[in-house]
Design a protein around this nucleic acid. Sequence first.
DNA 1: CGCATTAACAAACATTTGTTTATTAGCAAG
DNA 2: CTTGCTAATAAACAAATGTTTGTTAATGCG
Lengths: 198, 198
Amino acid sequence: MAGTQKVDMDGKPRAVIMNVAMHLFGKQGFNGTSMRVIANAVGLLPGSLYAHIESKEALLLEIVADGIERFLAAVEPHVASSGNPLDRLRKMIIAHVEVVADNPERSQVVFHQWRFLSPEYLPEAIERRRRYEACFVEVIEEGVKTGLIRSDLNHRIAVLSILGAMNWTPEWFSPDGRLSAAEVGDLMANTLLGGILS
Amino acid sequence: MAGTQKVDMDGKPRAVIMNVAMHLFGKQGFNGTSMRVIANAVGLLPGSLYAHIESKEALLLEIVADGIERFLAAVEPHVASSGNPLDRLRKMIIAHVEVVADNPERSQVVFHQWRFLSPEYLPEAIERRRRYEACFVEVIEEGVKTGLIRSDLNHRIAVLSILGAMNWTPEWFSPDGRLSAAEVGDLMANTLLGGILS
DNA sequence: CGCATTAACAAACATTTGTTTATTAGCAAG
DNA sequence: CTTGCTAATAAACAAATGTTTGTTAATGCG
């Protein structure tokens, strides 16, 4: 009786479908997830999905767009806020990890499955990703100008290292673990900002 | 006439097929790459591939196994070598980036497509990944014991941050860029080991 | 040449893919 | 009760999937 369990359809069924698709896309990938397994997980027949959604790609598009928006919404407020750049950067890292931890599967879709958007929607997704990176570049450069951050290192490499470390978190973070998302984010900030040297 | 160009079949055709599949798997994903597009890229008809390979999954298995082995071969020598842990860790980071840069697509397969191995081969792949992580854990813990590395930070988080930063490199590294792989690795080591504080 | 071997082809295979259609059950409002 | 609407079903669609088959062209060796 595996995989035959229904999902409570309280609330708009479109949201239920989106949610199920999000988890499956995150775990099996977009191309590794058929409409039939989505339907089965929701508790519907394949064709019935199309009463609520337009297409498989529309699902992906909405998940990706909404997902990126959540990261931006969590991080952008700290970019231009008051306080010194270092504290702000720490807050951004924590915020990022919190968004990841809130839903690792969604994060995986945002980080990896956006490639499978059709050329029509790709540029917008890429632009939003660029905007996200720009947030970190901006704060780091401000930190360099104010003398809080080393000026002898390659900023681009530093930003990409930080982003990489953060984007890897859905790969290992467990909501059942000992550390909360905020704690993990704080510890990551310790490593990334202060380094590991004693 | 797009996609009809043949590939020079010098050398064993199996290696050519593997190489083509590796690049496509890395860019489009395992499930996003059909045997037909592989065949077309190689310059063969779909069925002809099976004179040289056993199955699509056999391709993936070999690419993943061989790929992980390259990372291990590059990094493991530094784990138990002489020299202080910090220098060794730096060398490991550089070695890792060099393997990524040598073939970013292969790295993407190693990092992301191993999920699509069948349950039969999954455990071995996971075990090899674990072994790889263990290399970094070992050196870092030695660094802590010898007092070279801060003991006030979470080692696991530190290792995962470093691994995350490194595993993100295939996402942005370009062989045509200004920096060589070794230079990028060195700069990343600066950031990850020393932090960004001034 | 004659013969075995190799590797390619052309064609088909059974399934699975995303999606559409025609139809039916459930239910609220007049 | 009847009407109208929503959302599900059952069934089918064309296309694409990984793979197998029977056959043919090319190659090396006695």
